[in-house]
Design a protein around this nucleic acid. Structure first.
Length: 565
RNA sequence: GCGCCCGUAGCUCAACGGAUAGAGUAGCAGACUUCGAAUCUGCUGGUGGGGGUUCGAUUCCCUCCGGGCGCACCA
């Protein structure tokens, strides 16, 4: 809604005064129950007039374009307020209702977006950082999809590099077969930790690891077999966790090793074309022109690196899909790597896909320090899921003692994951977050379960109401219902902003505010026992619209909306 | 030393350069014989310091202070 008015204003003003820089403001009017938009502009300054004066001129000029949509008023400090007309409100509300139910589309039609997340590493458990990446990536993919983009959810995992030599070395030395069969991922972690503990006092181990990786690269049968066994077990485990999280399936799954065979030709090509050169025994792409340190393609011992494989993968993605954008949902920590990758891609003219590092802050321990794998301090993704679902189950049973065990499980899962995902998505991703069980497990207030609960309440009214026909919402005059309708109109904007900024916190906040407005309405207005049938139908229409908007919005965040929680 | 991210209420976080800086939580005080109290209502409380640009700065620029991350053979 805001966007519609903004666009009309932009076009109109550009037409009126030419290409002038101006600002349009859009906070809602707090004092009135109708939708309002405010305008202030540089025109006033440019022409040496007072804002109130130019705002009045603008108001008169806009009458013919916007008059049927809204009435306008100029406030004393020069802000132009729009009050939607009831007929327009009715029309727009029904549009939102159908959009919420059937999804949107259009702006992304025919465009492809590749979204990479969560970049797990084989042989290491999925940790809380991967959880953030998965939750953000999945939601972002949903948002782009709803805007009509052809989204490719890309699972790209680390399954190559020296660390696999180290792992193979410890596998050969210390593997506990029985433990591996029972809990392969746990045993891999034990081997990983043990290797680093032992290597601290025994430098020979490092060399052994490097040698084992070299054998792996050269195709040694035994190492190849161990490697693929570890890889397979890890991938199975990742899939199991993705299923538990209820995120959508990936469209493409590739490991770094998939690009191994392409690396030599690529390196040869880059050297031949003069993009890469030798330096201190290593092969680099010089990025000094971009003000960046060089990107390393090959170590002095001949082994390739993360950068080499990412470059190969990027080439593959662009060649295969010709995407409009490629989003990498990866932690802040790797900002420099992506700056280098993107700079190199520009130099190599790999294509004009918009490359975006969708970065998010680290998850810090309660001491404010990084959670590090080597010290075993990492919080496993699954531990978080277990804990929050268990907590949700306690709460569910407490609220609904008559539920069957299966129903309680189902609801606990939905509410627990809802709490977990929402808690992450409601925050602006850039800042580091301190890992805090209490905050993560809080299921009331501005939380996922709050919105789920609101949905269930509204669904309950609709179920009790039975069949009804869409009413005329322009007859509704209670402040709480006006506010609720006004809020509904912002749903498309919230989705659009989310895609534009690559953040979900605006959408999450919007849903909370919509749910809050719905709860206020719920507490103040009785719907079902109304003698006035027209009014009852109108209210049911609003409720149905809010319910489907909440459901659709939660779905975008990867959260399930149940009729009963 | 250089680069990136961050600093807002006791705590966790919001605010395309806009109106009186908003929420949650914690604390206090209220509302269930009525569509689900996982709810609603009220009170208390804030932009790290200093400059600059602007009609207007939490937002942009400079500087200082504080925290995190990264900076050539890890990913």
């Amino acid at each position: 809604m805001k966007q519609t008015i903004k666009k009309l204003l932009r076009d109109y003003i550009a037409d009126l005064v030419g290409d002038v820089s101006f600002e349009i403001l859009t906070p809602p009017d707090p004092s009135l129950g109708d939708y309002a938009t405010n305008v202030a502009f540089v025109i006033a300054k440019k022409e040496g007039k007072k804002p109130a004066e130019t705002a009045t001129e603008l108001k008169d000029a806009l009458e013919s374009t916007l008059g049927e949509m809204a009435t306008m008023q100029v406030s004393s400090n020069g802000f132009l307020n729009f009050f939607l007309k009831p007929e327009f409100l009715q029309k727009r509300l029904l549009e939102i209702k159908s959009e919420a139910q059937y999804g949107r589309g259009g702006e992304g039609a025919g465009k492809k977006v590749i979204i990479e997340y969560p970049s797990c590493n084989v042989a290491k458990p999925m940790h809380i950082g991967h959880l953030r990446s998965t939750i953000i990536g999945d939601a972002l993919a949903n948002v782009y999809e709803t805007l009509g983009y052809d989204v490719i959810r890309w699972n790209y995992f680390g399954d190559w590099g020296t660390q696999f030599g180290k792992l193979i070395a410890s596998y050969k030395r210390w593997l506990d077969k029985e433990a591996f069969e029972n809990d392969p991922v746990g045993e891999m972690l034990r081997l990983y930790v043990k290797f680093h503990a032992e290597a601290a006092s025994n430098p020979e181990l490092e060399k052994e690891g490097q040698a084992e990786f070299k054998k792996l690269e050269e195709g040694d049968n035994e190492n190849r077999k161990i490697w693929s066994e570890l890889r397979e077990e890890s991938l199975k485990d990742f899939d199991r966790i993705f299923k538990r999280l209820g995120t959508r399936a990936f469209d493409q799954t590739k490991g770094e090793s998939d690009y191994e065979s392409e690396l030599k030709p690529i390196i040869a090509y880059l050297q031949e074309k003069g993009f890469a050169r030798e330096s201190e025994g290593a092969l680099i792409i010089d990025l000094a022109a971009h003000g960046l340190p060089p990107a390393l393609l090959r170590k002095s011992d001949g082994a390739t690196l993360y950068m080499t494989r990412d470059l190969a993968s990027l080439g593959d993605r662009i060649k295969t899909y010709q995407p409009e954008k490629i989003l990498y949902v990866v932690a802040n920590q790797q900002a420099l790597h992506f700056e280098q990758l993107f700079a190199a891609a520009r130099d190599l003219k790999l294509g004009d896909a918009g490359l975006v590092h969708v970065k998010f802050g680290m998850v810090l321990g309660e001491d404010g320090k990084k959670l590090a794998t080597r010290e075993g301090k990492v919080v496993a993704a699954e531990e978080v899921i277990d804990k929050i679902v268990a907590l949700a189950r306690k709460k569910v049973i407490q609220k609904n003692p008559d539920l069957s065990s299966d129903e309680a499980d189902k609801i606990a899962n939905s509410v627990g994951l809802g709490g977990l995902k929402y808690n992450d998505l409601k925050q602006h991703p850039h800042s580091d977050i301190v890992f805090d069980w209490d905050a993560m497990l809080d299921l009331s207030g501005n939380s996922g379960p709050y919105i789920q609960y609101t949905y269930a309440r509204l669904a309950n009214i609709l179920a009790k109401a039975g069949a009804y026909s869409d009413g005329d919402v322009s007859m509704l005059v209670e402040p709480s219902e006006r506010a609720l309708m006004k809020k509904l109109l912002d749903f498309p904007d919230a989705i659009g902003e989310s895609a534009k900024l690559y953040t979900l916190n605006g959408l999450a906040l919007y849903l909370y505010e919509l749910a809050h407005a719905a709860n206020q309405f719920y507490e103040q207005v009785r719907v079902l026992e109304d003698d006035n049938n027209d009014r009852k139908n109108a209210r049911l229409t609003v409720i149905a619209t809010v319910a489907s908007t909440l459901k659709q919005g939660l779905k975008l965040l990867g959260i399930e909306a149940l009729e009963r929680i």
